[in-house]
């Protein structure tokens, strides 16, 4: 199948290095300490953060740092074919773990000993790149909850199809079977905190594709920065400052 047309356009009309439209909204769940909706094209996820609060299960309490927990769940209607999946299947457990590790790396956990931070992500629509969208939503929700962090982690995926590096794969491109790299970075510190790839790729091409994904992450970081700034301005305005 042809994923990039001779004119250099992808199936959904994007250029190879073009990202899908981003949309973010802060404060979607009123009762959570922090929450956000993040959309990348048709992929839409909602993230809520509860905490820092008292540890619910005493045996999990850590004396010198905060306990970070994460649960990833998909709505029944999120995929094209309706499936009723049991909670806690292997895929969602793995993604929960990936998100938890990525977020834990940027939260200043030593400032909140003996407490717990819960991150819940819910996929409303899945169209490729749910992992990245979840991380971006979780970052926004953590920032909304006012949890101290080193930096705002952002994530983006990239792939390689028809000898072309492609940024931000959608579902059709993702299921094409080509290599798919998901990168998470700390943009200000310029460090990679998450790197996953499936299928094989020559080293020199890998470097190109990873560089493309990192550029994508940086673009998302700029967008997230703008959203947070706008949100803070709104808060300031409402406070009458």
């Amino acid at each position: 199948m042809e994923y990039v047309s001779p004119e250099g356009l992808r199936l959904d009309g994007r250029r190879p290095m073009e990202m899908r439209q981003l949309r973010a909204q802060i404060g979607a769940v009123a009762k959570a300490d922090g929450s956000a909706v993040f959309e990348m094209g048709n992929t839409k996820v909602i993230a809520a953060v509860y905490g820092p609060r008292e540890v619910q299960n005493r045996s999990q309490q850590i004396g010198d740092q905060a306990l970070v927990r994460c649960e990833y769940s998909m709505a029944n209607f999120s995929t094209g074919d309706r499936k009723r999946k049991p909670k806690g299947d292997r895929r969602s457990t793995e993604i929960s773990l990936v998100i938890r590790q990525t977020m834990e790396a940027c939260i200043l956990t030593h400032l909140m000993p003996r407490s717990q931070i819960d991150i819940y992500v819910q996929v409303l629509q899945a169209d490729g790149g749910t992992r990245s969208a979840c991380i971006n939503a979780a970052t926004l929700a953590l920032a909304d909850a006012g949890i101290p962090m080193h930096d705002l982690v952002t994530s983006c995926s990239a792939g390689y199809l028809n000898s072309t590096p492609l940024l931000d794969l959608n579902y059709v491109e993702d299921s094409a079977g080509g290599p798919d790299i998901t990168v998470g970075i700390l943009p200000k510190l310029d460090k990679v905190t998450l790197l996953q790839m499936d299928a094989k790729l020559p080293v020199d091409i890998f470097e190109n594709v990873m560089q493309l994904a990192i550029e994508g992450c940086k673009a998302i970081a700029t967008y997230i920065g703008e959203v947070l700034l706008e949100n803070t301005k709104q808060l300031e305005y409402r406070k009458g400052l």
């Binding site: 809520a48 819940y120 819910q122």
Partner: peptide
């Protein structure tokens, strides 16, 4: 009709 309670809404909905 099926209803799903997302843990996003309430932390007690986590897991089962």
């Amino acid at each position: 009709i099926f209803v799903d309670c997302s843990p996003v809404a309430e932390p007690t909905f986590e897991g089962r």
